[in-house]
C-alpha cells in the first residue's frame, strides 16, 4: 500500500516538475517572476485539444507529434511576448514586471475564453496509452509512466545542456552574475530570449500532456501557477535541480498524506514550504 502511494507520488511529482522547471529556469536567468507561465501551459493544453484531431486522432504517434508541435507553438508565442514586451521591463522595478506578466495572464485568459468557450473540454487518450501495467495487483498506468519518461528526458536534456554545451555554461554564468556575463561580451538579449522560449516550450508540452490527463478550461492558468510556485519556492527560486527535489517531495508527501491523514494532506505541503523558508532565512541570518 505504501509502495503504491509512493509510486503515485513520484509520478505526480515528475509531472509537477515538467511545469515548474520552465518557471524556475526563466526566473534563474532573467529574475522575472513570470505569472503568465500557467497561461502558456493552458495555451498548450487548448492547442493540443485543437490540433490533435487534425493530426491523427486516436494514435499514440499522432499524440506525441501534436504535443511537440504545441510545445513549439507555445515557445513561439512566448518568444513574441519576450521580444516585444518583457524585454522592455528587465530594468524596471519588480512591480512593473509583475504588472506586465499579470496583464498577460488576463489577456491570454480572455482570448482563451473567446476562442474555446467556458465549458470544460478534454482530449481522449489514445488507446495505446490508456492501459496500465499491473504488477502484483499494483496498477502503474501507462500514461503516467510515459509522463515520467518525458520528465526524465527533459531532466537529462537540460542537465546535459547546462553541463556540456557552451550555451549552457553561459546560462549558468548568467544565473550567477548577469552583469559579468554582459561585460564579457555575451549578448544577454539572446540568452534571455532563448531561455524564455525553452521555458515556454516546457510549459506547452506539460499542458499538452495535461489535456489528455484531466479536464481543461479557461481557469487552468491560475490553478496551475499556484502549485508551480509552491514547488519553485521550496526548491529555491531559480534552482533547476531544487525544483526537481521539491516536485518529488511535494508529490510523495501529498500521496502519503492522503493515505494517513486525508484532511491534512495539503497542510503538510504548506508546512514543508514554511519549514524550508524558515531554515533558509535562519541560515542567511546566521551566516
Amino acid at each position: 500500500m505504501l509502495f503504491v502511494q509512493v509510486m503515485q507520488g513520484v509520478m505526480e511529482g515528475i509531472f509537477l516538475f515538467l511545469i515548474a522547471s520552465g518557471l524556475t529556469l526563466i526566473f534563474g536567468v532573467s529574475r522575472i517572476v513570470n505569472f503568465a507561465h500557467g497561461s502558456f501551459y493552458m495555451v498548450g493544453a487548448f492547442l493540443t485539444y485543437q490540433i490533435y484531431p487534425w493530426i491523427a486522432e486516436g494514435t499514440a504517434l499522432g499524440f506525441f507529434v501534436t504535443i511537440l508541435i504545441c510545445g513549439l507553438l507555445v515557445a513561439a508565442l512566448g518568444l513574441l511576448f519576450e521580444v516585444f514586451l518583457l524585454r522592455r521591463v528587465y530594468h524596471a522595478e519588480e512591480l512593473m514586471q509583475l504588472v506586465l506578466t499579470l496583464a498577460a495572464v488576463l489577456i491570454i485568459r480572455d482570448v482563451t475564453k473567446f476562442l474555446w468557450g467556458l465549458d470544460d473540454v478534454t482530449v481522449s487518450l489514445p488507446d495505446a496509452l490508456s492501459g496500465a501495467a499491473v504488477i502484483g495487483g499494483t496498477y502503474l498506468p501507462t500514461y503516467q509512466l510515459v509522463m515520467v519518461g518525458v520528465g526524465v528526458v527533459v531532466l537529462a536534456a537540460v542537465w546535459g545542456f547546462l553541463k556540456f554545451t557552451h550555451a549552457g555554461i553561459i546560462l549558468r554564468a548568467a544565473t550567477d552574475d548577469r552583469g559579468m556575463v554582459a561585460l564579457l561580451g555575451t549578448n544577454q538579449a539572446h540568452v534571455f530570449s532563448s531561455v524564455f522560449a525553452i521555458g515556454c516550450f516546457l510549459a506547452g508540452i506539460a499542458g499538452g500532456f495535461a489535456a489528455a490527463f484531466e479536464s481543461i478550461n479557461y481557469l487552468l492558468d491560475t490553478r496551475v501557477i499556484v502549485l508551480a510556485f509552491i514547488v519553485v519556492v521550496i526548491g529555491g527560486l531559480g534552482n533547476f535541480y531544487g525544483a526537481l527535489y521539491a516536485s518529488l517531495a511535494v508529490g510523495i508527501l501529498k500521496a502519503l498524506g492522503l493515505l494517513f491523514a486525508p484532511r491534512l494532506s495539503m497542510v503538510i505541503i504548506f508546512l514543508l514550504m514554511a519549514v524550508v523558508l524558515l531554515i533558509r532565512s535562519l541560515r542567511r541570518t546566521t551566516e
Binding site: Q8, F213, R223, K254, A255, P262
Partner: peptide, 20 residues
C-alpha cells in the same frame, strides 16, 4: 473519507488511496 480541493485536477493519489 477523502476531500480533494476545489479546482484540483490530478486526482490520481486520491484514486489510489480510495482503492486501497
Amino acid at each position: 473519507q477523502l476531500w480533494p480541493r476545489i479546482g484540483e485536477t490530478n486526482l490520481t493519489s486520491y484514486i489510489t488511496a480510495a482503492l486501497s
